[in-house]
Design a protein around this nucleic acid. Structure first.
Lengths: 344, 344
DNA sequence: TTTTAATCCGCAATCGATTGCCGGCATTTA
DNA sequence: TAAATGCCGGCAATCGATTGCGGATTAAAA
């Protein structure tokens, strides 16, 4: 029962004593075949349990109907949601997904890209790894004639299709909200500044301080505090300052914010009355901590769908020879919860 | 710059005035080529930015070095972790992953399987959707000579490779722990019984009650309470009984347990003193609710690695013509937290 | 010096599906 | 009736890489 050779169009052609080309045409519903023979072929194909060999088909047609996706980690909420979104939209169009993780390493990222190029994917969707420094591997994708779409963590200087969040605006709104709640000394936990998203969030933070005429205090800005542990560590440092902050904006992630919350609780500091906390990403748990954590929702599933549809749209009007770089910016939403509400 | 034809082995062969077969052999590091020419070929290949066309290669070799994975939802913690595990192990072996979501629908599951068969994947890894009733589509995979590996939610009657959790034992231990904490009336929130995992967890529950000579009370067993909302609804019903339970085992998921906790909190019922709660899956948030939730860890990433390695191992000794069905059972771990601890 | 073996390389078939082109037959139009 | 058109089917090349086989050259053994 095992591993008999699969039935091919030649098997069908042989059985019906016709040419393979006719079988192929029938299977592709070409109107170049008589309706009766087409039916007969389809029937025979079903009987013989024929499955098209997509490899052969793609090789001949020079396309693979496959989209390659590279993310730092598959099992992080934001990314798995984006992937789910991409998958949903792609499935409807008959496209498949090949997923790779870069593990936040440019080294592996390069390998993933090469694999995907070898696989002749039609499109590569990527969110950069944290230590991504130069972008020759991305240029390589383009040079190989593969559509490249960057999302979330993008290389600004590369003119490709992009789907991003308006991080600066979201960050600005979050910090403005914090200020309006009466907090005066607002600390920032920032992420690796080689990633544009973290630079933008910092800019938003600075702009908000500026708008409300609050001083920028370098002591309250902590670099690379983007995990729960680093967030906790940074918080310990901040709260032990002679003049500690009265709010902490964990611009990097909700995990970082969780670290802040845990340290504050352990130190007996009351949230939000004595310390305001705001995270980023709207992870599921932010709703159920006590107090619940104010955060920013990035519409991750929608983002994934947008990425996929952007590709399909580009395909549709590929009569244009040149690719016009296009950027779709999604406005994230501030989710105000208990951890920053001390008015009202 | 765009969409020039890619360089092929023929381009390399042409430039060096040798046969394509030699180029192929050099690229595959065959020792059938002179060391000097091999070097020259490799150098030229790099210069011309050659990328192997994996489609052609796979077509010729009759294998795709690709594993297809089908899960209900990509963006659920357990599944995304399993996928991350599979990806990690596969990547090391040079295998690619094609990911599909069944959306808990057998209908889509069938389509996914057909897609993967068409793609000529070497192996299909699947965790069944909840409404999966018959298993002809799985049989179809086997009939097409594709290795099938089931994990977590498996069809017992199908003799394939399987990687599962010992749900019955885990459930037994969880309920035993609850009983040992002095709870007497333990409710069970159970999942759809057509899935074997939920049947097994129920069995474990029943066995534990039996062992400790506790009565089985039908009123305390609620069917299909496997989301947060359904868990909450079930809890409202249970706690309004004339004789309400003093503990609830949400055997379906931690989300369900979270629903229980929220309703209990809203009703002013103290956890764990008045009500014990135990979930299943060790979702990240169970650690940070107050009180933290006792749950069962399924070692999901490890499970993914195990699945992948099981496949590679089978490949290695495929000299055996017949496939020996093999089941790997991973023993989950009870994580005891505050929500069930009222002794000590 | 001759035989044997080893090493390298090329030819050509192959994997399975697709598609441009040609030709036979039937139908329609002049 | 002859010419033009349309429909349907087959032939054969093609996509790019792999591989069995045979031949040529060189090195090693007798």
């Amino acid at each position: 029962m095992k591993n008999k050779k699969r039935t091919t169009i030649y098997d069908i052609a042989g059985k019906l004593n016709i040419a393979a080309s006719s079988v192929s045409r029938a299977l592709n519903n070409s109107n170049h075949v008589n309706e009766a023979t087409k039916k007969l072929i389809l029937k025979t194909a079903a009987e013989l349990n024929y499955k098209r060999n997509t490899l052969a088909s793609n090789l001949r047609k020079g396309q693979s109907k496959t989209i390659g996706v590279i993310v730092p980690f598959i099992n992080q909420n934001f990314f798995s949601n984006v992937i789910a979104g991409i998958e949903e939209a792609s499935y409807q169009k008959g496209y498949n997904l090949i997923i790779c993780q870069s593990n936040e390493s440019q080294n592996k990222e390069v390998k993933c890209i090469n694999t995907l190029i070898n696989q002749h994917v039609d499109c590569i969707v990527i969110s950069l790894s944290v230590d991504s420094s130069d972008h020759r591997h991305l240029q390589n994708v383009i040079d190989n004639g593969i559509q490249l779409i960057q999302f979330d963590r993008v290389a600004d200087e590369l003119a490709t299709l992009k789907v991003i969040n308006d991080n600066e605006q979201a960050s600005f709104e979050a910090v403005s909200h914090i200020i309006e709640q009466g907090y005066k000394r607002i600390a920032l936990l920032e992420g690796p500044q080689n990633l544009n998203i973290f630079r933008q969030r910092k800019t938003g933070y600075l702009n908000a301080l500026k708008k409300y005429n609050l001083p920028i205090l370098d002591a309250l800005i902590i670099e690379n505090a983007w995990t729960k542990e680093l967030g906790a560590k940074a918080t310990r440092k901040l709260l032990n300052l002679a003049e500690p902050p009265d709010a902490i904006f964990a611009s990097t992630s909700d995990f970082s914010a969780l670290g802040v919350l845990e340290v504050a609780s352990a130190m007996g500091i009351k949230v939000p009355s004595e310390l305001g906390i705001c995270g980023y990403s709207n992870e599921a748990f932010t709703e159920i901590t006590s107090p619940s954590i104010t955060t920013v929702d990035q519409f991750s599933i929608y983002m994934g769908k947008t990425v996929a549809n952007l590709y399909f749209q580009e395909m549709d009007n590929k009569d244009e020879t040149e690719i016009i770089p296009k950027i779709i910016s999604i406005k994230p939403k501030l989710i105000i919860r208990s951890s920053t509400q001390r008015n009202g």
